[in-house]
Structure formats: C-alpha cells, structure tokens
C-alpha cells in the first residue's frame, strides 16, 4: 500500500510537471506563430508601399515626358 502511495505521488508530480511544460511550450509556439504572421503581413505591406512609390515615380516621369512633347 505504501509503495502504491509513493507511485501515486510520483505520477501526480510528473503529471503536474508535464502540464506546466505543455503550457509553456504552447505559449512559445503561439508567440512564434504570431511573429511569423506579423512578418508575412509586413512583407506584403512593404511590397504595397514600394509599388505605390513606384507608380507615383512613373506617373511623374510620364507627365514630364508628355510635357516635353
């Protein structure tokens, strides 16, 4: 009976430790996923912003060339 109690106690501690580790791992995985998502969105935003700049630049160029005609 005593050894049973010991085993029970050890298992309970192990279960607690595992659940704690799982919680931490979950949080870390969620943070990494969030960071990757932010990076993905930001890279698309940067492409958009640069494209807008390029359009503005080319419009200016076209205006200048047409005025020179």
């Amino acid at each position: 009976m005593k050894s049973m109690k010991k085993a029970f106690f050890t298992l309970a501690v192990a279960a607690l430790l595992l659940s704690a580790c799982n919680g931490k791992a979950k949080k870390e995985a969620a943070a990494a996923l969030e960071a990757a998502e932010i990076q993905r969105i930001d890279s698309v935003t940067m492409v958009m912003e640069n494209l807008k700049g390029q359009i503005d630049f080319t419009v200016e160029e076209v205006d200048q060339l047409i005025n020179e005609l």
Partner: peptide
C-alpha cells in the same frame, strides 16, 4: 495518471 502523462 499514466494516460495523462502519455498525453502530455
């Protein structure tokens, strides 16, 4: 408890 550990 064993099942819990394994799941963990």
């Amino acid at each position: 408890l064993l099942i819990l550990c394994l799941t963990g």
